[in-house]
Structure formats: structure tokens, C-alpha cells
Amino acid sequence: MAEDGAHPPPRHAPGWERFEELHDVEGLRRSLLGCVSRACPSWLSAQREDIVQAALVRILEALRRRGESDRPLPASYLWKVAWNATIDEIRRATRRGERGLEDLPVDPPDRAPRADPGTMHASAALGEAVRECLAAMHRPRRIAVGLHLLGHTVRELMEMQGWNEKQVRNLLHRGLKDLRACLRRKGYER
């Protein structure tokens, strides 16, 4: 849950019961948790449940503001609302993570895990190196590798870019080879 207590537990939110009557909230929670877990980096892992919980409340709030909390709605519309709510909550969690190291209390012995600065520092440096390598890459390869690093599969690349499978695999193979060589030149070995 948000550290500032801005989000009450969902079951106490006004209109929550009606929301549960109309929609499979547990299914939604599971879906969102899966999405957040797969999309977020490990340094946000401790906050995934909180992000989803807060996003659920925001979804309900958004529907209530629009007078839409008491009727079933098209799935595509609800996914859109869920997207807005969830990305907002991820950003809140990210901001807390970024400023958190300034605000950290001295350790109590058994507090919950949080982002590790050593790991984050090394990961951020690797990210910078990857960006530099991508920037120097032949454009089609950069787009192919970039979309792959953003999570797209070969099939999705084919559909999105209008490439055939051979083209996609070729661009990825060559692009990742370029990336590997570039990172090696920067001192990153496997």
C-alpha cells in the first residue's frame, strides 16, 4: 500500500461491493498482477502488490467520477481505465524508489526488501551502455532489437513491422550480434 496511506484498502472503498458484483475483481487483480510483475524491473518487485491494489482503487474512483461504476462496461474500455490507473501507480512507486534512498530510515533489522543500490547502479550503467550501442546500430536492426528488448516476440515483430519471419530473425540475429560485440568493447563480458 502506498506509504502515505492515500489509498484505503479496496474493500473499504465506497462502491467497492457493487464493483465486485459487476466485475470479476479477483480475476482482474490477478491479470494486473501478472502484467505488473512481467513489466516492472526487479527493483520494483517489493511494490507489485501495492501497485495493483492501489490501481484497483483508482479504477473504481475513475469509474465513479464518470458515473460508470454501477453498470457493466466494455472490456476494451475497462482495460484502458486499468492502463491509466496502473501506469500512474507504477510512476508513484518509481518516484518513491528514486527519492527513497534520500529518505531511508536507519535499518530496523527485518524491514521489507527494497531496491539494492549496488545492483541498481550496475544495472543503470549497463542500460547506458546498451543505449549507446543501440544508437550506433543500423536502423532496421536497432528497431528490431529495440522492440525485442521492449518485450516483443518474433511474431509480434512480424505483425507490427510487416516483416516476414526470415527478415525478423535475420535482423535480430545480426542486431544482437552487433550489440554483443559493442558491449564487449565497453568491457561487458558474459
Partner: peptide, 17 residues
């Protein structure tokens, strides 16, 4: 650097500020 577990590492790196 580009085995599946390495791809995960690169994805993580790009998402780390």
C-alpha cells in the same frame, strides 16, 4: 550477452534509472 537470461538482464537495465 544475448542468451535468454541475458536478454532479461538487458531489459532490466533499460528499465533502471
Amino acid at each position: 550477452m544475448t542468451r535468454p537470461d541475458d536478454i532479461d538482464r538487458l531489459r532490466e537495465a533499460l528499465a533502471t534509472p
